[in-house]
Design a protein around this nucleic acid. Structure first.
Lengths: 150, 150
DNA sequence: ATTAAATCGGATAATAATGTCCGAAAAAGG
DNA sequence: CCTTTTTCGGACATTATTATCCGATTTAAT
């Protein structure tokens, strides 16, 4: 589902969102705290820094700082640099797939992927920290209670 | 999402469900038809055979046959032998996770996994073949009768 | 200026996933 | 019996992911 690397990134970002109030947090500190291989986490943080999600301060008293508001940073965005979504364009039906008319199995798989991504795109770091229970899975819909007539 | 191996398995099973009406289908034939590395597919089919999902007939005129009714075989089941679901027991919150009271981030990740799996568990091979458009994601209300009579 | 703390980034190693090769065994048909 | 077709299964090769190492650079504090 989420790659190991993506999970590490998410953990670090959550840590920063929760405990990075006063000044930047060194990578080594986070690695120790979270139980992540230090040198590997360093690479991940560099990446997030290049991506603009983190800001690095070098030298003594340096470290990383979370740039966006946790309420506006979705898990999908946070993890995107490590997911590599390399569009496998092989249809489930193989040779059976017509490719001219839309193949059902093909469409279905895209839907699966979309559903998985949508869930991550609806969750922000703030959600995770605050403990908002997961709302109904209705992509594109704001949470309007339509079940009141059952 | 789905591993490459899992996708291959799914393709082969769909092929058998669609074209395996009269007699077993050889692995080599499927590999050619679906554009899957022949020797690799062979390994996958062996696995499905040991799992009881396929039945192998050896020797000339042999091949593989789909054992369960496509309407009762879910994608989740078909792909399960290759997913290895190795329960990563690292909480998203790292050291912050209490582990005594239920950690929100922890719970949330399990929900993500569950949601992804649920979608696969609700789809049968017959669904894919028949072209049933994906119904609303309602776990209790499966669109295909997977337990109507027994 | 010197030192210590920290990121930066390239090179490399270890592990897992994917793909290949080949010989043995089984079954069918002559 | 012999040949052909096919699965079986172990060993190996390739590639991607994950992890480690180390020297260079930047910065703050002494």
């Amino acid at each position: 589902m989420l790659s190991q690397t993506g999970l590490y990134a998410l953990q670090a970002l959550l840590h920063l969102a929760a405990k990075g109030r006063n000044g930047p947090v060194p990578a080594g500190h986070m690695a120790r705290e979270l139980g992540i291989p230090a040198n590997y986490l360093a690479k991940i943080l560099q990446r997030l820094s290049r991506e603009g999600i983190l800001e690095a301060t070098r030298g003594a008293r340096g470290g990383y700082r979370l740039v966006p508001d946790p309420a506006r940073l979705t898990v999908a965005t946070a993890v995107a640099p490590f997911q590599e979504l390399k569009t496998p364009r092989v249809c489930l039906m193989g040779g059976l797939c017509d490719l001219s008319n839309p193949c059902v199995a093909h469409t279905r798989r895209l839907q699966w992927n979309a559903a998985a991504l949508a869930s991550l795109a609806r969750t922000t770091l703030a959600d995770l920290l605050a403990g908002t229970p997961e709302e109904a899975d209705r992509p594109g819909h704001s949470n309007q209670p339509t079940e009141n007539d059952r």
